[in-house]
Amino acid sequence: KMTIRVKGKELARRIAKEMKDRNLKVEIHEHGDEVILEIE
Rank of each mutant, 00 (worst) to 15 (best):
G8F: 09
E30F: 14
R13E: 12
D33T: 07
K17I: 07
A16I: 13
R5T: 08
D33R: 05
I15L: 12
I39N: 01
M2W: 14
I15H: 00
R22V: 03
M2H: 09
L11F: 06
M19L: 14
E18A: 15
K17A: 12
I39G: 01
E27V: 14
T3G: 02
K9A: 10
R5P: 02
K20F: 09
E18T: 13
G32W: 05
D33F: 05
K7S: 07
R14A: 09
E34K: 04
E30C: 15
D33V: 06
T3A: 05
E30A: 08
H29D: 03
D33Q: 06
A12R: 02
G32S: 04
L11Q: 05
H29I: 14
K20E: 11
R22G: 03
M19N: 01
T3N: 04
H31V: 14
R14K: 11
K20R: 15
R14L: 10
R13F: 13
A16K: 03
K7A: 07
L37W: 01
G32R: 05
E34N: 08
H29K: 11
K7G: 04
E34I: 14
G32K: 06
V6T: 03
V26L: 05
I15C: 12
E30G: 06
R14T: 05
R13L: 15
K9C: 15
A12H: 01
D33C: 07
K7R: 13
E38I: 15
E30W: 13
K9I: 15
K1G: 10
I36R: 04
G32E: 09
E10M: 11
E27T: 15
L37P: 00
V6N: 02
E34T: 12
R22D: 02
A12T: 01
R13G: 06
D21T: 10
R5C: 14
E34V: 14
A16G: 03
E38R: 10
E40T: 15
A12N: 00
I36M: 05
I28H: 03
A12P: 00
I15P: 00
I36D: 03
I28R: 03
D33H: 06
L11M: 08
E30V: 12
E38H: 12
K17S: 07
V6G: 02
V26Q: 01
E10S: 10
I4M: 09
K17R: 11
R14D: 03
A12C: 04
H29C: 13
A16C: 12
V26I: 06
N23I: 03
R5G: 02
R13H: 12
R22C: 14
R14N: 04
H29F: 14
K17Q: 13
K7L: 11
V26K: 01
A16M: 11
E38V: 15
R5H: 08
T3P: 01
G8D: 15
K25F: 08
